[in-house]
Design a protein around this nucleic acid. Structure first.
Lengths: 250, 250
DNA sequence: TTACTTAGCGTAAATTTAACGCTATTGAAA
DNA sequence: TTTCAATAGCGTTAAATTTACGCTAAGTAA
């Protein structure tokens, strides 16, 4: 072999993280900003997904964790690899100059491994994000992002919708104690559908890994609801292994 | 920023391909062999998954396609990214020396993007594979592989089983015309379960994208079966978009 | 001719889903 | 104080789907 097209000295790998959160009404994604000067001398600020080149001795998950933790303060519970974007032309021209300036290297190409993270938004986390220059933007309000980050975001949203049908990830978004209403609102928002309240409740309560806490809401302008929590251990024991054989395959 | 741990001059990216086929009885995976000399002078031949470092101007899918096509002769219909293996120590010592010798480069680290492919095994393909030094090994017969390829294979098998529940990928394994028995055998093999013949048939025939060809088997030692084919266009039109909202989420 | 194997049609009970009625409890508005 | 708006929460029923089987048909091989 010994392919003449291989030089390997200018490729680098980055991680970019799509971090989703739910504010009770809408899905939000974590964005940061990139400041750069155009050749014209003009300064532009492009919103982008948080990311970083990886260090020589770092695996991808650690790198992604480093990036996310920088903005949210805590280790995110749900953080997984999604997809690699590898178009040789995905970063070039001004984009590439920015990276070379910013990191002090001379690259001709950057592949990025996209990570997918879910976090529970709370006051502490929001404060931390703000301090670090991050922003939680409603999905509907996301405009043009740097590089190919719009494409990445679209892919991540699709991924999120699919995952919602396959794993109990909804609970990653909600506080430890949540009401059926909160859970339902989340499903309706993420999947963009309306759900019958009575059937939803019946279905969810039939799952023995959703457990009643024994506390109620208070000071709400309607009948106060029970709080529930997600018993992950129970779920892992009973469901993960079997991995739900659908009818035919029985 | 300007992280001092970033040098970027010794990382390379490879693709490794897990290519599955079905021979009517068992699942097989495509393996190749790597010849190398140990420091002792001894020659060893390790079976491994087919793979390659990527060229400077090549995206990952093209690289994977190049690798697979080299062994099977045809462009594989089903070829998708699976997962990146990025442990900084995953390739080191002798393993790394082999790569550096083989490709004529000086690397300290190799990340690999695993691709997942499904092919229809036929005589022509089998001949091609043999000529190129590849082997179709039954999953049960796979022993120690080079590098972290056993780990990669396990992950791919898991991926395959999950995909079987989510997409109609069974048809990627079978000839264009297949019988219900062939389809059922495939399901039973991949998912490692027994299926009631009558219910399986009922379920499959209810899917309007499985269409009767109008031909029958012959020279079989039992009642000859109808051939069917998978109407991918029909499937795409009717099912892919909706992406099957399961009950609760209606 | 018989045995063996798989194809292929059918029935019925059990389970799950989908559609919807109704009452209860809270804070806020009138 | 009464009414209203909003959500909680219990229930019924028909339809659809799944599961477990019984049984006959059509081939080859012994």
């Amino acid at each position: 072999m010994g392919d003449p097209n291989l030089t390997y000295d200018k490729q680098a790998i980055s991680v970019d993280c799509v971090v989703f959160g739910f504010d009770g009404k809408a899905l939000r994604v974590l964005l940061t900003r990139r400041r750069r000067s155009l050749p014209s001398g003009e300064e532009v600020v492009d919103p982008k997904l948080p990311g970083s080149l990886i260090s020589d001795n770092e695996d991808l998950l650690s790198a992604a964790d480093r990036v996310v933790r920088d903005f949210v303060g805590v280790r995110s519970i749900y953080l997984k690899q999604m997809e690699v974007f590898s178009d040789p032309q995905r970063v070039q021209g001004n984009e590439l100059s920015w990276i070379n300036t910013h990191y002090g290297v001379e690259l001709s190409r950057v592949l990025t491994v996209v990570f997918f993270a879910l976090v529970k938004l709370d006051e502490k986390l929001l404060t931390h994000t703000k301090r670090r220059g991050g922003e939680w933007v409603e999905l509907n309000d996301v405009r043009r992002l740097a590089l190919d980050h719009n494409k990445i975001l679209v892919s991540a949203i699709d991924h999120l919708m699919h995952l919602f049908h396959q794993e109990p990830i909804a609970f990653e978004f909600l506080p430890k104690k949540f009401t059926m209403r909160q859970l339902q609102n989340l499903y309706e928002t993420v999947l963009d559908i309306e759900i019958d309240n009575r059937n939803f409740r019946k279905k969810m309560l039939a799952l023995d890994y959703i457990v009643e806490v024994g506390e109620k809401e208070n000071s709400v302008a309607h009948k106060p609801a029970q709080f529930y929590f997600f018993d992950k251990k129970k779920y892992d024991r009973e469901y993960k292994k079997i991995f739900k054989l659908s009818s035919v395959y029985k």
